[in-house]
Amino acid sequence: MAANVYVGLVHYPIYNKHEQVVATAITNFDIHDIARTTRTYGIATYFLIHPHEAQAQLANEIMEHWQQGGGAQYNPDRQEAFRVVEVAASIESTIAEIEKREGKRPRVVTTDARIFPNTVSYAKVREQISQGDEPVLLLFGTGWGIEKETMAAFDSILEPIYGPSDYNHLPVRAAVAIILDRLLGESWWTKA
């Protein structure tokens, strides 16, 4: 079902807590945990999106250790998870790469803890994915979220994840897992 679904973790353009646009750092945990989650849900490719070469090099060194280095023999499950991870320099280059692979531009869906005019439900995006008519790129922001003008250019934005409290600041790794389960996981609510 997820053969034409892609995930991108965006590190620029991102807001910091002072609402300044910055490039956030790639973290080891985000590489590992999101790779495992995307592999579990059958994602075609998980793109680490970062414009700075030094950060891309760091990510590639980490991945190389787990794909060909000592980590590959130490933990073959991690090696398998890293099979779906690639580094990209920008959102635009990620879209272009998917378009090249799929023969058409992907529908770009992103996430945020806020409501936007083009906010859509999980049910709607799950239905679009299940129809399989077009590739889908799910973008997740780091820091304090993707810059607003960039957000406005996306096809749609998923509604926020709400818990039972008034606190709403999930780590991106948790948000990715929850959202992929909502969009691609089994329909447990239909089972008795």
Results as ranks from 00 to 15, higher is better:
residue 17 K to L: 15
residue 39 R to G: 08
residue 21 V to W: 07
residue 49 I to T: 06
residue 39 R to K: 09
residue 48 L to N: 03
residue 62 I to W: 12
residue 55 Q to C: 10
residue 23 A to M: 15
residue 54 A to P: 03
residue 34 I to W: 01
residue 70 G to N: 02
residue 21 V to A: 05
residue 44 A to S: 10
residue 61 E to P: 07
residue 28 N to P: 02
residue 60 N to W: 06
residue 31 I to N: 00
residue 49 I to D: 09
residue 33 D to A: 14
residue 42 G to P: 08
residue 53 E to Y: 14
residue 45 T to F: 01
residue 26 I to D: 09
residue 42 G to A: 10
residue 25 A to M: 12
residue 61 E to W: 14
residue 54 A to H: 15
residue 69 G to N: 05
residue 33 D to M: 12
residue 22 V to Y: 11
residue 18 H to C: 11
residue 23 A to F: 06
residue 43 I to L: 14
residue 30 D to S: 12
residue 41 Y to G: 05
residue 45 T to P: 14
residue 41 Y to R: 01
residue 55 Q to P: 05
residue 34 I to M: 04
residue 41 Y to M: 14
residue 37 T to H: 07
residue 65 H to L: 00
residue 59 A to N: 04
residue 37 T to F: 02
residue 49 I to A: 05
residue 19 E to T: 06
residue 46 Y to R: 02
residue 66 W to K: 01
residue 32 H to I: 10
residue 50 H to T: 11
residue 27 T to D: 14
residue 62 I to V: 15
residue 70 G to F: 00
residue 24 T to K: 12
residue 23 A to L: 15
residue 51 P to V: 13
residue 34 I to C: 02
residue 59 A to I: 10
residue 51 P to L: 05
residue 70 G to P: 11
residue 36 R to W: 00
residue 58 L to A: 03
residue 53 E to K: 14
residue 28 N to C: 03
residue 17 K to H: 14
residue 52 H to I: 14
residue 33 D to S: 06
residue 55 Q to I: 06
residue 34 I to V: 12
residue 43 I to Q: 09
residue 16 N to A: 07
residue 41 Y to E: 08
residue 49 I to C: 10
residue 37 T to L: 04
residue 70 G to D: 02
residue 24 T to M: 15
residue 65 H to G: 01
residue 23 A to D: 05
residue 29 F to K: 13
residue 51 P to Y: 05
residue 65 H to R: 06
residue 43 I to C: 11
residue 55 Q to M: 10
residue 30 D to P: 03
residue 62 I to H: 10
residue 20 Q to Y: 12
residue 49 I to M: 09
residue 40 T to V: 01
residue 62 I to S: 08
residue 42 G to M: 09
residue 27 T to C: 11
residue 35 A to N: 07
